[in-house]
Design a protein around this nucleic acid. Structure first.
Lengths: 138, 138
DNA sequence: CTATCCCTTCGAGTGCACTTTAAGTCAAAT
DNA sequence: ATTTGACTTAAAGTGCACTCGAAGGGATAG
């Protein structure tokens, strides 16, 4: 039993990207679906996995240019593994920084919500401003 | 002793935004510096705090439109606190989702780095693909 | 005095990652 | 048979958040 093949429409629903975007990614060299005798694209399970991996990379903030670089290195074989590791380490660092910053920003938002809540139920003095309130947590 | 006042150039260095951006934010209604008798903008410590708070909100992913809405509500006084809380809760939720997604993506990147490293030092079988490798962590 | 900064309006330009259109042909599903 | 979906190329459009430029004039620091 051969593996499931998807045409672009079905595949686009599966990976939650428009057909436009899939063709765009293909133009950019990120994916290479097979074609049938009529030139229609067919995607298999490998393409699903590969695309999902790309989307994970993308989701860390990697740009198109970096993804293309990564793909180019991959196509060159094992000789470029060091470069790929180096790029991924940068991506890792970057993602960690983003997480830290988000957590930082989130903490402020949480304090602000608490402060507003306190104002509403009057457990916070009407005169105490957010700055003063924040000092309690330093 | 009066508090320190900044002209736009000094302020822009302090908050790490260009003068262009500061004027743009002002046009959008996000900040309202005082002016001296010649029309030059002066920013004080309050402006530093307010802008930093805005940047925290911004850093969670809030758009300009949302920031403007928030500022508009703030200008309307305490009657809009409920709306502001509601917006901030959405922002909070959003930031939490972003963090989770980043962590998720990061985990994949980390596995990939480990897998490449394993390939390089030959602790991973040359034939074992990333998919198989990942299964070990399920 | 002179270099540097700041002011205004406002429209145009930038960068990124899509997103859509056009025009015409061909394939596949019901 | 008919609707729906797929194919091509090349170019233009979108949305967001800036970012910059022109033109002309006033302010301030060294």
């Amino acid at each position: 039993m051969a593996e499931k093949q998807y045409k672009i429409g079905e595949f686009s629903r599966k990976v939650n990207l428009s057909s436009f975007t899939l063709r765009y990614y293909e133009d950019e060299g990120l994916i290479k679906p097979r074609r049938n005798q009529n030139g229609q694209r067919f995607y298999g399970e490998q393409d699903v996995k590969w695309l999902k991996f790309l989307l994970h990379l993308k989701g860390t903030g990697m740009t198109m240019a970096e993804l293309k670089q990564y793909v180019a290195w991959r196509a060159q074989g094992d000789a470029t593994i060091q470069q790929r590791i180096k790029l991924l380490r940068r991506v890792k660092q970057d993602a960690e920084d983003q997480i830290r910053e988000l957590e930082n920003n989130l903490a402020i938002v949480n304090h602000k919500i608490d402060w507003y809540s306190g104002k509403l139920d009057e457990t916070i003095n009407a005169d105490e401003d957010f700055e003063q309130y924040l000092k309690k947590f330093e």
